[in-house]
């Protein structure tokens, strides 16, 4: 475990380097960016003064280490656009993104199990085919397009849900349904395939031999065996989910982290982009780590195997 933590830490340092380097290589004068689009009218002396005051004239390693140090003290820097600490900006937007992501994960797990298990119980039956076809269809277009059509239908034509914003939570329903639903369908497929794999294994046959009915055996023995796989799968899809959120938040006018990064990009708020890359890296690493722990806990075989 200590080994795993150390490797996580090294990865994090690498991620921070990547994010700092990328932004450092950005075209354009950072001082000018600091002052915004109206900087053209500022005299060069004033520009130099601001440049050295902000430490923008220091050499690269010095700036990188300085940046790392301030991050360790919980200071992600200041947004060029609003002059507010980036941490404050993130804190204002994170809950929305977290809610949608979490909601989507929960919904995906539920739909995955609710749809996946019947597929196994009636392999080749109606549900099996229906899930297969819907999953294929919903996976054939990017989620944001599904979201857009849902928005048009449910919010504009039927006037059931809000068109934009959080609106006390109801604005999150469609994004969660879109992302979670699509993910749930593919989870159902994975679950089905994995379960079908398990039902041919010896211990499962033994369970049947003990007199359990097929559904009972699937629920008691099969599911337990594939649970860890499900967790791994969801963790792997999580990174993609964060990517999908950028477009979904934009479509639904939700002020989350995803739409914020687009805002930061269009206003060239480089410190925000920098902090965002690092932040996402941390979140994904944390997610992978916790999935790992969960898998070990669910399936002691994995822990043993990885030790060996």
């Amino acid at each position: 475990m200590a080994h795993r933590l150390i490797s996580c830490f090294l990865t994090l340092v690498l991620v921070s380097f990547v994010s700092f380097l990328a932004v450092d290589l950005a075209p354009g004068d950072p001082t000018r960016l600091l002052l915004g689009g109206t900087a053209q009218e500022i005299a060069p002396e004033a520009l130099d003064r601001i440049r050295s005051a902000q430490g923008l004239d220091a050499p690269f390693p010095e700036r990188y280490l300085g940046w790392l140090k301030s991050i360790l003290f919980g200071d992600l820097g200041v947004s060029l656009k609003t002059n507010r600490p980036i941490l404050t900006e993130f804190a204002a937007r994170l809950p929305i993104t977290a809610l949608i992501a979490f909601g989507a994960l929960v919904l995906a797990s539920i739909t995955g199990f609710v749809l996946g298990v019947p597929c196994v119980l009636h392999e080749g039956g109606f549900v099996d085919h229906a899930v297969r076809i819907t999953a294929s269809l919903f996976h054939s277009v990017p989620a944001f397009l599904v979201g857009l059509f849902a928005l048009y239908l449910f919010s504009f034509k039927l006037e059931l849900l809000p068109l934009y914003g959080v609106s006390g939570g109801s604005g999150l329903i469609l994004p969660v349904l879109t992302l979670g639903g699509i993910m749930g369908l593919s989870l159902a497929r994975v679950l089905r395939n994995a379960l079908l794999e398990t039902v041919h294994e010896e211990h499962f046959l033994a369970a049947l031999g003990k007199g359990l009915s097929y559904p009972q055996a699937v629920l008691r023995h099969g599911l337990r065996n594939v649970l860890s796989l499900m967790v791994t799968y969801l963790a792997m899809r999580f990174a993609g989910l964060l990517g999908g959120l950028v477009l979904i938040e934009t479509m639904f006018s939700l002020p989350g982290m995803g739409s914020y990064i687009l805002e930061a990009i269009s206003s060239r708020d480089l410190p925000v982009i920098q902090a965002y890359i690092l932040f996402i890296g941390t979140v994904v690493l944390a997610c992978n780590l916790s999935a790992d722990l969960l898998v070990r806990w669910l399936d002691p075989r994995v822990a043993k195997e990885r030790l060996g």
Partner: peptide, 24 residues
């Protein structure tokens, strides 16, 4: 593998958004 770990921690699509935003 360490390098790959770092890259895998950055969702490709998000990194592409950021890099395209920075470099055009």
């Amino acid at each position: 593998m360490r390098l790959i770990d770092a890259l895998l921690a950055l969702p490709g699509f998000l990194l592409a958004i950021c890099l395209l935003g920075i470099f055009g």
